[in-house]
């Protein structure tokens, strides 16, 4: 018995599935079976990637998109036993490879990141012990942002799926998991709105507190009515949660 028979066979099979290079010393008779396993494995991975990134996939010619998946499977070892998490590996891999810029899709990083965050937020473990408490809307009430959110600064408006091609534009996208419906939604914020969200996530506060904090932070005095409207919008989206007395 060869002590490394098991390693040689399992390693060779895994290598072939990822790269398509037929292992030296493997009999020809194994080729049809190995090719079938290569097809099956790749369809699991490409289905996952396609499902995770529908917007990116729609924006890129199919052959190019398939090449991105191909390169990813060949080059990126996948360490998570949880299949859905490979979407995060895919976004990270192509960011590190600078794929978007190289292929003439400079918006690709933004789009991959946005769609990955959307998936991650949908699946993210619940904060232990946290419960959503809808604010009353009373003036002066201190609130905080719900925990399941991410504020993205984008260089391209990749969330706009209709209209002309993508032109550079700085956007502040607040993605969040609605604590009631548990669906993931987003708001495209103005710079002041993004500042308000940033202030709120750092420390709870009332509408007035946040207006003051924005002044201290950025030296601008946001319009009070606009701030009230922003808070009303946040509240209607279940983005704000009441904080307990002892935390105030």
């Amino acid at each position: 018995m060869h002590p490394d028979r098991l390693s040689r066979i399992t390693g060779g099979m895994a290598g072939f599935i990822r790269t398509g290079v037929y292992p030296e010393g493997f009999p020809e008779s194994w080729q049809p079976g190995l090719t079938l396993y290569r097809t099956l494995t790749r369809s699991i991975l490409s289905d996952m990637v396609d499902t995770a990134f529908p917007i990116c996939k729609r924006r890129i010619p199919e052959t190019v998109w398939n090449d991105l998946t191909e390169l990813f499977i060949r080059e990126c070892p996948l360490h998570s036993p949880r299949l859905w998490e490979i979407a995060g590996n895919f976004a990270e891999f192509h960011r590190n490879e600078n794929t978007g810029v190289r292929l003439g899709y400079p918006w690709l990083d933004d789009c991959l990141n946005m769609e990955w965050i959307e998936l991650e937020l949908f699946n993210r473990p619940d904060q232990p012990g946290w419960k959503f408490k809808a604010p009353t809307g009373r003036t002066g009430e201190k609130v905080s942002l719900i925990p399941d959110h991410e504020l993205l600064v984008l260089n391209y408006p990749v969330f706009r799926t209709a209209g002309p091609g993508l032109k550079p534009e700085t956007c502040f996208l607040l993605l969040f998991r609605d604590p009631v419906s548990l669906t993931v939604q987003f708001i495209n914020l103005q710079p002041v709105g993004a500042l308000a969200a940033e202030c709120l996530r750092n420390e709870p506060g009332s509408c007035e507190d946040i207006t003051d904090r924005i002044y201290k932070l950025a030296g601008i005095s946001p319009d009070r009515d606009a701030m009230t409207r922003l808070f009303t919008l946040f509240r209607s989206k279940n983005l704000l949660t009441r904080i307990s007395k002892e935390k105030q």
């Binding site: 028979r5 399992t10 390693g11 895994a14 990822r18 494995t41 991975l45 036993p81 490979i86």
Partner: peptide
């Protein structure tokens, strides 16, 4: 294999 998952059940020798 080598700490990389393939997400398919592959046959052992």
């Amino acid at each position: 294999v080598s700490n990389a998952h393939l997400y398919e059940l592959l046959p052992l020798p």
